[in-house]
Design a protein around this nucleic acid. Structure first.
Lengths: 301, 1272
DNA sequence: GGCAAATATAAAGATATAAGTTATAGGCAAAGG
DNA sequence: GTTTTGCCTAGCGACAATATCTTTATATTTGCG
């Protein structure tokens, strides 16, 4: 049942035209710039596609000299459309640098009622922990309007590995439901565009292109640190009811159960982002809640 | 003191000997025939070879099935069932017990044949007899009859139990049994009467039976009855009360200057005084202060949780009596709340027990842990749980909490220990024998190996498996950790439910004030490196409460220093504390170590090791009151000083959030980690402060009392005191707080050594003895000032390397000086003689390394001690200068910056096998402290320097390095090796038993068929089960424990926990085995040297203590000890240690095979070599490769392009496919090319062999005798 | 009432979890095309 | 079947990942004649 909820992807590769169809509204609003973060090999290709597809300016983030060389070549033949920045999309500093006027500084647009008309972020996330971490971070940045999203409600199109795709799109009650799906659910539309076959790309594995459009307003209203604390603790056991897991938030935290608008017997994994946010809010209001919410046993010698 | 007291003790006990004729007789039998042992000693040289061979315990490889039989390793599930069985018997659930027995015989017949011994049966039978409400004699007889067919021979205890049962029912049957016993089993009647399963009343009823059996006509029966009567008379003819208080017992506290014990803020006391208070409080007012120390020690060990409970109860009742209202009760808030928890928890425990009783066969968990909840009353279970949880506060680096796994296992373990303690206490008859041993030991006789042997033999005569404690033949299976965890989790979860704290709060909606009853503890989780860790946390309110109250209420003391001599080690698990069962070796999760130790113990190989440990334990200590007072003052002031951390009142204010906290993840992250760091620091400081608090508390508790530290060993044989908090291995503070009990006049030499000692402690230890002596004399003003105004004066002592010890030395020196006649001053201060880089000393001795020997003072090297670190630094500097002259930039930067300190750590850790990386890190740290070094260059410089240090070390200690390498290599070979049988069993080598193992075969197939790789020379890891094992010159078998972890998840009530599975097959960790072998081997040698020296010192009447390679004695005995140290070192190294080692290896690993990879295609190999060479040498070739790579990448790119967008001209899959194939072709060609050039390898098994030993150098070990700074 | 098949249940094995990589890089052993 | 990837990185003393899903093994029930 869980699987049937997802749009099945054919291993057939969509053509560029097909792909473009999915971004029709974008074409209408004539994008002025894009960011590409070609994190994995072979995707200089991706940059090239963007170049050939009506973007006015493509800023390519590529820190690895070997690949950088490649993109630079691309840049040269692109007549100034493609611009190479030797920065890593993984680095936080990169996004500060991008706010410089010569890059995206001019385009900053604090109006979140509309999707940012001028900036489009795209790239490929690597398989493994790094990519996962990065995607999760993108989502928290959206909901908190941090980093890239200080510049506005920027839409993204990301190539992500299979496993990540299932996680980020997991609906309440599904097997892949996790912290990241909750945050994604709360702050953005995540829509599949197309997929690769298992061996189409290196490193091997299925990749999916997802279109991420931040909501005008995140559903997470509680204080972020509190929400994160609550989320982290509750998701230790998703198959247990909230009434059980809420106790792990603090001694006597079950007192907030009666203050909720829904049945506390609900299983964690089936809770919606809004419900979780409500828990976080009530938890925050609870006078006896633990003072310190940072509790990383960061024990290094 | 010890002598007079000991003599008294002996005299006193000898009275008991008369009563306890059996012990007396046996003891005399053995001791009175010294020639038996002398003769063997006389022929020792002659039979040396023989004994040497026997000295090695050799067991089948841990991977072989034979191992399980020989080593008698109890499988986990059986161990679990045994524990349950015992718990059932103890709690009277005999029906269940019987069912378990039947089930065991049905499902585990083989194991039962091996492990179901007469002691098990006796326990079971006794359970039937003592069954409530009436003896289950029928079942008893059934199982008695079942013994013989199952190969279990009934013994006197068996019959005692059965007879006891029938005496209450039918004299007829009893008589029949008696006759059967004597005639068929040949068990003498009197041995039955002596059985510890019989009470005096039981024996009394024997008499009654005899009296009522006058009409018996059968001759045999009459005869036997007569014997019985006689035996009964022997026992009952004596006073029935065995533990008569000796009124002549010397009062424990006999210190002339008995000081009033000052109060420690905020805590009061633990330990002895605690015990005394308790005893006094519980209506034993007179006995405490004049109690026999032996009994007091027993009391101390046995002040179980019951005591704590009763104390709580007592306090409570007292306040009630005083008419306190509930609110104004004279209990501290904490105690009151603990009482409430206890009250709340009791019904919960009781309910749980009932639920367990009612548990259906479906409720497996309850059926498993249920019986264990019945071995102790609910009151005890409750208090144990409360106190254990409170004790674990802040353990495992968790702030205000503990890891769940730790908590529940500890609770379970505590329940088990308490249960054991209660068992022992309830059977007081078992103790006399023990105190006899103790008396014997106190007299010093047990250091005579012959007497020791006699004593051990005697114990063996009396009981096969005596542990010196409790009923000799008790069958007491240990609770496997799974059981402990489950039992602990039940109790813990009940406590979590019960323990609440009322806290004022308010409703956030209405703003109404309310009281919330929040849990004192709660179960939660934390993530560490993405892994969940279960935590039990204290609520903040509880933490605050704890902080305000003395630790004595929450810290249930355990393993305190002893008041009397520790019991001598008679077997691997008998010795040390009087009634707390302890192991002579600290073994963690390595069954193999235990097996070898046990075997060695059984075969009497450990006598010398044990007497060494006994000597260490016999050293009597006192708290140094002068130092203690200063410590106390500092502590109460809350000042940070020396090792004492400051009091931190409130949390430090958090740093302000940065401007861009809400927008920049980096900024946020930095701030969060800063906060976390602050929190960790606060936590660390707090636990440091707690640690010091425990130490000070312990010191205070023993302020006027003698202290003994029972010792045991780590797996290499290094000795450690068992009391964990305050001991002489602790930090400077601990050491400063302790000195010898005995005071000995300094004499001229001692006075000199005292002065030298002070200089050493100050840090002035690289100079000649005379210079050091002068240093002390010239510092006299400072010393006196330190003594007179330790805190208000110049605080000179604080500048010392070891301030507290230095202060102690100052007191001693000052007192000596002021006595007017220093040489007559009686000193208690231990004087240290430290090996100079002891590891290297042993290496140098083994390698016969001349230069090395000089560098570490094995040979005299001048009028000052040679200092390896300086030596290495000099050598390095020389090389650097040369390199700098040649223009090496790095060397130039380093010139003049390489001090002794920079290289010290690396040189020191070199013997531990530090790697280049580690060494570089160390040096890096040192270089960073130096401002002359440009930051950016530090890394490169440290790498460069590390290399130089390594090469210099190699130069200075050639022999040592060769040996180190040889050891590493040999260990690697061993750890990779596999016994021939394993190969034969798996059919890799012909010649094995032709598939005799039916079931074995199938299981192997099952496993192999699944997913696991097949066992072969190429893939041997899963079957590499061979640990490196060797025997020290003293006979201690050493087993390196490094294996792959075999942890499994275990379900408990709170969560699953992850613990080592005792049944898991755990292949060795080859690299750890080999890299750790050299240090372990050397440590086993230095441990040997230390134990030898300990015994030798003791023989000469010197007090001895040690911290591994630092040997301590009274000042006046330093010269004597120095001689001993050297003699023992020479004796140790005069043996062909390395030759013995290799011989042992060859014997132990006879017929072992090592996987070997060899090149079979010579040509291919050559080709590859050529190709490899060209790859780097030939420019054009290199270009070609690069070109190829480039092209490959291009193809990849194209490929990806096609894949993603279908941009290729040809539509869809076809084009892609072609493209793919083309690409692949290219790539394959490249690969093929390289593949063609690759050599073929063959994997084979070859016999385990060793490299020849490195050649020994010229150094003559006897030089040590003449080296003044060997230890200094 | 006996035995085999089918089903239920338990044990064992796998996998995901969090989230900046923590400053370093070489040697050796596990794993996999 | 041998290159690539990955791990750890000075020893001992002080211990310890866990929830949940998947697969496999074992126990129990059912079904049948």
């Amino acid at each position: 049942m869980s699987k049937s909820k997802f749009k099945p992807f054919t291993s057939k590769i969509p053509t560029l035209a097909e792909w473009s169809k999915n971004f029709r509204h974008r074409q209408a609003s004539a994008p002025r710039a894009t960011l590409a973060s070609p994190s994995i090999a072979g995707l200089g290709t991706w940059t090239m596609t963007l170049k050939d597809n009506g973007f006015k300016r493509v800023i390519a983030l590529e820190p690895v000299p070997a690949y950088n060389h490649w993109i630079t070549g691309l840049s040269e033949q692109s007549k100034g459309i493609v611009e190479v920045l030797k920065k890593d999309g993984y680095d936080w500093e990169t996004y500060i640098g991008l706010k410089e006027p010569q890059y995206l500084g001019e385009l900053e647009n604090k109006d979140w009622t509309h999707v940012h008309p001028g900036i489009f972020f795209t790239g490929t996330l690597p398989k493994g922990s790094r990519g996962e971490q990065l995607l999760a971070q993108f989502m928290t940045c959206i909901t908190n309007k941090m980093a890239l999203f200080t510049m506005g409600r920027i839409q993204m199109a990301l190539w992500i590995p299979d496993s990540l795709f299932y996680k980020i799109t997991a609906a309440p009650g599904t097997n892949a439901r996790c912290k990241m799906s909750v945050i994604a659910e709360a702050c953005a539309d995540v829509m599949p565009i197309c997929s690769t076959g298992p061996k189409d790309v290196y490193p091997h594995g299925e990749y999916h292109l997802v279109h991420i459009i931040p909501f005008a307003e995140s559903q997470i209203k509680s204080q972020w640190d509190v929400f994160e604390y609550v989320l982290k603790h509750l998701f230790v056991m998703q198959k247990k009811p909230l009434s059980h897991m809420v106790r792990t938030l603090g001694p006597g935290a079950d007192i907030i159960l009666g203050r909720l608008s829904f049945d506390p017997q609900i299983l964690i994994g089936t809770m919606t982002a809004m419900q979780l946010d409500e828990v976080a809010t009530k938890f925050d209001e609870w006078p006896l809640r633990p003072r310190v919410l940072f509790e990383d046993a960061s024990v290094f010698t | 003191m010890s002598l007079s007291l000991a003599r008294q003790a002996v005299a006193k006990r000898s009275l008991r000997f008369h009563r306890q004729s059996k012990y007396c007789q046996v003891l005399l039998k053995h001791v009175a025939i010294p020639c038996r042992y002398q003769s063997s000693a006389a022929t020792a040289t002659e039979s040396d070879v023989d004994t040497n061979r026997k000295k090695h315990i050799i067991m089948p490889n841990a991977g072989l099935s034979a191992y399980k039989l020989t080593a008698k390793v109890l499988p986990g599930s059986v161990a679990e069932q045994f524990a349950v069985l015992k718990a059932c018997i103890i709690s009277g659930s005999m029906v269940r017990a019987e069912r378990i027995m039947k089930e065991l015989y049905k499902t585990r017949p083989e194991e039962m044949k091996l492990f179901a011994d007469v002691n098990l049966y006796n326990t079971l039978l006794n359970g039937f007899i003592e069954a409530d409400p009436k003896p289950m004699t029928k079942e008893c007889l059934t199982w008695l009859d079942a013994m013989k067919p199952r190969g279990v021979t009934a013994d006197a205890d068996t019959y005692a139990i059965v007879l006891k049962g029938f005496l209450r029912q039918s004299y007829h049957t009893a008589r029949g049994l008696l006759v059967e016993m004597v005639l068929e089993e040949g068990i003498p009647v009197d041995s039955v009467v002596k059985s510890e399963y019989l009470t005096m009343a039981d024996i009394e009823s024997f008499r009654k039976m005899v009296a009522e059996s006058t009409q018996i006509t059968n001759n045999n029966a009459r005869d036997i009855l007569a014997q019985l009567e006689a035996a009964v008379d022997v026992v009952l003819g004596k006073p029935a009360e065995p533990l008569m208080k000796d009124s002549i017992a010397e009062p424990l506290i006999r210190d002339a200057n008995f000081d009033p014990v000052p109060e420690v803020k905020p805590t009061k006391s633990i330990g002895v005084q605690f015990l005394q208070e308790q005893l006094a409080a519980l209506g034993d007012p007179n006995a405490t202060s004049r109690m026999d120390p032996y009994d007091l020690q027993l009391g101390l060990e046995q002040q179980g949780y019951e005591m704590a409970l009763q104390r709580l109860l007592y306090d409570k009742e007292q306040s009630m009596e005083r008419g306190d209202t509930l609110n104004a009760m004279n209990l501290t808030p904490l105690k009151r709340i603990m009482w409430e928890w206890h009250q709340k928890m009791l019904p919960l425990v009781k309910e749980e027990v009932e639920r367990c009783d009612a548990a259906t066969s479906r409720e497996n968990e309850r059926r498993l842990y249920g019986p264990f909840l019945k071995v102790l009353p609910p009151e005890t279970l409750s208090i144990v749980t409360i106190l254990e949880l409170l004790r674990l506060h802040n353990s495992s680096g968790i702030g205000d909490g503990m890891k769940t796994a730790r908590a529940i296992i500890d609770v379970g373990k505590s329940v088990e220990m308490e249960y054991n303690a209660v068992q022992i206490k309830n059977k007081a008859r078992g103790f006399d024998k023990n105190s006899d041993t103790h008396a014997l030991f106190s007299s010093g006789k047990l250091f005579n190996l012959a007497v020791r042997k006699a004593r051990i033999d005697m114990e063996k005569d009396l009981s096969q498996h005596s542990n010196g404690m409790g009923p000799a033949n008790d069958w007491n299976p240990v609770w496997p950790s799974t059981i402990r965890a489950k039992v602990g989790s039940v109790l813990t979860s009940l406590l979590l439910e019960a323990a609440k704290i009322p806290v004022p709060s308010k409703d956030p909606e209405t703003g109404m004030k309310i009281i919330e009853n929040i849990p004192a503890f709660f179960h939660t989780y934390q993530y560490v490196h993405g892994k969940r860790v279960g935590i039990i946390k204290f609520s903040e309110q509880l933490t605050h409460m704890l902080a305000r109250e003395p630790i004595r209420d929450t810290l249930h003391p355990r393993l305190l220093p002893m008041l009397v001599h520790p019991n001598p080690w008679l077997s691997y698990n008998s010795g040390g504390y009087l009634s707390t069962k302890s192991m002579c070796m600290r073994v963690k999760d390595s069954a193999e170590q235990l097996v070898y130790l046990n075997k060695a113990s059984e075969n009497d190989h450990l006598a010398k090791v044990f007497s060494g440990l006994d000597v260490l334990g016999s050293t009597c200590w006192r708290v140094n009151k002068s130092v203690f007072n200063v410590v106390l003052e500092v502590w109460n002031k809350g000042e940070a000083l020396a090792d004492i951390p400051p009091v931190v009142q409130e949390h430090a204010p958090l740093p302000p959030k940065p401007e861009n906290y809400d927008t920049d993840p980096k900024a946020k992250f930095n701030w969060v980690s800063e906060v976390k760091q602050i929190q960790t620091n606060e936590r660390n400081n707090h636990s440091l402060r707690c640690d010091v608090n425990y130490k000070v508390e312990t010191a205070r508790a023993f302020l006027n009392l003698p202290m003994y530290f029972p010792h045991n060993m780590d797996f290499r044989g290094r000795a450690y005191p068992m009391p964990p908090t305050l001991n002489h291995l602790g930090n400077d503070l601990c050491r400063g707080l302790l000195h010898f009990e005995e005071a000995k006049p300094l004499g001229a030499r001692g006075w000199r050594w005292l002065k030298i000692h002070l200089a050493n402690l100050y840090g002035y230890d690289k100079h000649s003895f005379t210079e050091r002596e002068e240093f002390t004399m010239s510092s006299m003003d400072n010393i006196l000032d330190s003594v007179d105004n330790p805190l208000s004066g110049k605080r000179w002592w604080l500048k010392a390397d070891s301030p507290w010890q230095c202060l102690a030395a100052c007191y001693e020196v000052a007192a000596a000086v002021r006595s007017g006649a220093p040489e007559e001053f009686k000193s208690q201060l231990p004087i240290h003689q430290d090996g100079t880089c002891n590891g290297l000393q042993h290496y140098a001795a083994l390698g016969g390394d001349l230069a090395g020997a000089r560098a570490v003072n094995l040979a005299n090297s001048g009028d000052r001690p040679a200092d390896v670190y300086t030596g290495v630094a000099e050598l390095v500097n020389k090389q650097i200068d040369e390199a700098a002259a040649e223009g090496n930039e790095l060397a130039q930067l380093l010139q003049g910056n390489v001090s002794r300190k920079v290289v010290k750590q690396t040189v020191m850790t070199n013997v531990y096998g530090v790697t280049f990386v580690g060494a570089r890190a160390q040096i890096e740290n040192r270089l960073r402290e130096n401002e002359n070094i440009p930051r950016a260059k530090v890394y490169a410089l440290s790498g460069y320097l590390a290399k130089k240090v390594f090469s210099s070390l190699g130069e200075m200690f050639t022999g040592a390095h060769q040996i180190q390498d040889w050891l590493t290599d040999s260990a690697r070979r061993i750890a990779r090796s596999v016994p021939l049988e394993t190969l034969q069993e798996s059919g890799l080598v012909p010649g094995g038993p032709p598939a005799a193992k039916g079931p074995e075969e199938t299981t192997v197939k099952k496993r192999g068929g699944g997913k696991k790789k097949e066992f072969s020379a190429r893939n041997p890891t899963a079957n590499q089960m061979t640990s490196v094992i060797w025997t020290t010159p003293l006979g201690l078998p050493i087993v390196q424990p490094y294996r792959r972890s075999g942890k499994k998840q275990i379900a408990t009530l709170l969560q699953t926990i992850f613990i080592e599975d005792p049944d898991a097959s755990r292949p060795v960790n080859t690299s750890k085995q080999s890299s750790a072998f050299p240090p372990n081997f050397i440590h086993s040698l230095d441990a040997t040297h230390m134990l030898m020296s300990a015994v030798a010192c003791h023989k000469k009447g010197m007090t001895f203590a040690s911290v591994h390679d630092s040997y301590w004695t009274h000042a006046c005995d330093v010269d004597g000890m120095n001689e001993v140290i050297r003699d023992q070192f020479i004796e140790l190294h005069s043996q062909p240690i390395m030759e013995n080692l290799i011989a042992e290896f060859k014997e132990r690993y006879k017929d072992y095979r090592v996987p070997r990879t060899e090149v079979i295609d010579k040509n291919a190999n050559d080709e590859q070599d050529a190709a490899g060479a060209s790859l780097f040498a030939d420019e054009s070739e290199l270009d070609k490769v690069l070109e190829l790579e480039k092209q490959q990448k291009e193809n990849e790119k194209k490929d990806a392009l096609n894949a993603i967008f279908g941009l290729a001209d040809m539509p869809e899959a076809d084009g892609d496919g072609d493209q793919d194939e083309d690409d692949n072709d290219d790539m394959v060609m490249v690969e093929k090319k390289s593949k063609k050039n690759l050599s073929k390898y063959k994997h084979t098994w070859e016999p385990l062999s060793f490299l020849p030993l490195p050649k020994k150098g010229e150094f003559d070990i006897n030089e040590v005798k003449k080296s003044p700074y060997f230890f200094h």
